[in-house]
Design a protein around this nucleic acid. Structure first.
Length: 193
DNA sequence: TCGAAGATTGTCT
DNA sequence: GACAATCTTCGAG
């Protein structure tokens, strides 16, 4: 694989464009001797302080600080007392927007994922949820604030996904701004597992 | 296959 | 003190 890491400029664009373009890109984490990779198949956009569902709606706090950082920064947060979720900060500095990576399709390091996830067989259930993929990829608070254009946790360019395979829907799992159509998914992504 | 409910803790009101 | 960008288990159909 000769894929390159997406440059910082990739993220310094409109958040909805980034969320769409991230489909098909490859999330990679090098941990110790292992390399884990997965194809991004589901994303959600969170549009800054005026988006009631975005964490930045609470303003600039220690928790939301990474959202105010440079594009391409990882924002990793803890939810429900037990789960981690990973986002990519977008746009220019000072505009606290991000894209939540909700699901990836396992590509490499599947044994590593399976060990961490305790999933017996099949690819389904390994990475098909924002907290599941963090568990599988060994992503936690340590990666919060990391530079995704270089370092052990990166996003590589992948095969682009044609429009006919992309569905756009409302975001899920949230209570505020429920009907904003800011979720992108690759149709039939992990049914081939 | 689906829906309900519990787990568990950081963060903000 | 309430609640959260979730997952898992468990019971019913």
């Amino acid at each position: 694989l000769t894929a390159r890491a997406l440059p910082r400029a990739f993220y310094d664009r409109d958040t909805e464009i980034v969320a769409r373009e991230l489909l098909g890109a490859v999330l990679e984490h090098r941990v110790g001797r292992s390399v884990v990779r997965g194809r991004i198949v589901e994303t959600e956009a969170y549009l800054g302080e005026h988006d009631p569902a975005c964490h930045a709606a609470a303003g600039r706090t220690p928790r939301t600080e990474p959202l105010y950082g440079r594009p391409g920064t990882a924002y990793v947060y803890f939810v429900y007392g037990m789960h981690w979720c990973v986002n990519v900060v977008t746009r220019a500095e000072g505009l606290p927007s991000a894209v939540l990576i909700r699901a990836v399709e396992p590509l490499d390091g599947i044994a590593f994922m399976r060990r961490r996830r305790q999933v017996a067989r099949g690819l389904r259930g390994l990475c098909d949820g924002p907290a599941k993929l963090c568990e599988a990829f060994a992503i936690d608070g340590q990666e919060n604030g990391a530079d995704l254009s270089r370092g052990p946790l990166r996003i590589l360019s992948g095969e682009s996904v044609p429009n006919r395979l992309v569905q756009r829907t409302a975001r899920i799992g949230i209570s505020r701004a429920r009907n904003w159509p800011l979720r992108w998914i690759v149709a039939r992504a992990w049914t081939r597992a």
